[in-house]
Structure formats: C-alpha cells, structure tokens
Amino acid sequence: MIEVDGVGRSFTVGRRRARRTVHAVRDLSFTIEAGEFVGCLGPNGAGKSTTIKMLTGILAPTSGRLRVAGFDPTRRRTALARRIGVVFGQRTTLWWDLPLRDSFQLIRHLYNVDQKVFRARLGALTDLLGLDEFMGTPVRQLSLGQRVRGDITAALLHDPAVLVLDEPTIGLDVVSKVALRDFLRALNAERGTTVLLTTHDLGDVEKLCRRVMLIDHGSLAFDGTLDDLRATVPDERSIEDVVARLYTEGAAPSPPS
C-alpha cells in the first residue's frame, strides 16, 4: 500500500554565504502492506513530518521513489487525495469559520461522495466519535479534542484506503486519547484501513501499533514489532526508557527479519 524506496529530502537554508543544505530525510526505504497499523517514532526534527508530507503529496522528494495506494504522490496528488485521509493533530484542515456540518458537506462535494453513502458514513462516524452535539458549532469554537475528532471524521468521509495521522493525540486528555485509540483500532480491524501514525506518546504505540518504525536523523533506525524494540535494550524496563536510550545513544541495528 505504501512503498518508499531510497527517498531523500533536503532543504537549503540560510542566505548567501551562510547557505547550507539540511538533509531532513535521507535514503529512507520501507514498505507497508494493506491493513497494517504502523507507528512512527522519532525525536523532534528527526524527519517524521517531512516523511508524512512526502507520502501525502505535500512535499516533493528530492531523491528516490514513492508509491502510495498505487500513485506517485507528487505527480498524481489529486488522484491520491481521493484514496487517503490525512489528519494533522497540530492544526485543522477544516474551515475555521464554518460549522462542522458545513465543512463535512463541503468535503462531500469536493470528494464527490454520494449523498446516501455520505449520510450513512457521517452518521456512523459522529456516533462513534460523539460529535452529534457539535455539528452546528463553528470549528474555531471547538475544543482541541472536539476539533481533532472533527478532523478525523473529515478525513474518513470518503472511505480512504490509507489513513495518515501526524501526532493525532497531541494535547488530548486521557479520556479523549483512550476513545480515539479505540476508534482507530476498530477502524483498522473492521474496515481494514491501513493506518500510519506519528506520535510522541508511547501509549499510542503500545496500545495500537503492531509495527514500529523509528526515524532518527532522517533515516530508518529501527523497524519491527514493539517486542523487538524492547529487546534491543534488554536492561531497560519500561518502553519509555528504551526509546529514550535509543534517541540519545542512537538506535541499535534492526533485528534480522
């Protein structure tokens, strides 16, 4: 479903003499099969968001080859948009001044979703995410938790094959987090939606992800199950300590797969 082959992305920063090239992502390769639930970890500035942006067609890679749901994200951006859903935890993709209901209607038109299908999906999603009472509220008046749920609903109205979430649980309270995790787990299990999320919350990874990828300094430092990840630092107890060690000392090589 997602194929990444030797992908790199560099940025030129600074002006004139101080100009230099920063490699946000370098020589990244991995494959994600349909129906997988993958968590992507890494310290701030490791290249997680850049990777997500390349997968969704927002950024063009400077080298390598990408395929998502059968499309090259940069060349076939609008075709890809119909097959994937994208959620940014840190900012909304909804229309700030419009009530949720109107944002969803607009998305129905933009994605050409049939009215009947749309009603059924919206009904199911608002039930699951408890959004019913906020449908008439403008997005700017929603709390963070309500807004993220709104964004997730918006990202799923066209029934995408892949759902990409960039830090979806950031800033959410414990109850909202648990509800969101339950929802995502069910979505993956029942509909078979492929899910890729980035997070700093190791609870997300422990509760949801069968597979973990660790990105550090723009390349893949680890790719395997959570148990494999734990096994790389045997003397540490909690997963937090394991990941903290990996972030500070650099990750051990991936186990043979």
């Binding site: 067609g57 927002i58 075709a79 948009a81 119909r82 994208v86 940014f88 900012r91 909304t92 933009l110």
Partner: peptide, 14 residues
C-alpha cells in the same frame, strides 16, 4: 506561514 497550504494540498482539487 499558517500551514493552511498543507491543508489545501491534501484535497482532491487544484
């Protein structure tokens, strides 16, 4: 600057 352009890029229209 606000990141709104990212949101436009994920929609299936120009």
């Amino acid at each position: 600057r606000t990141g709104g352009f990212d949101a436009m890029l994920i929609r299936p229209v120009g």
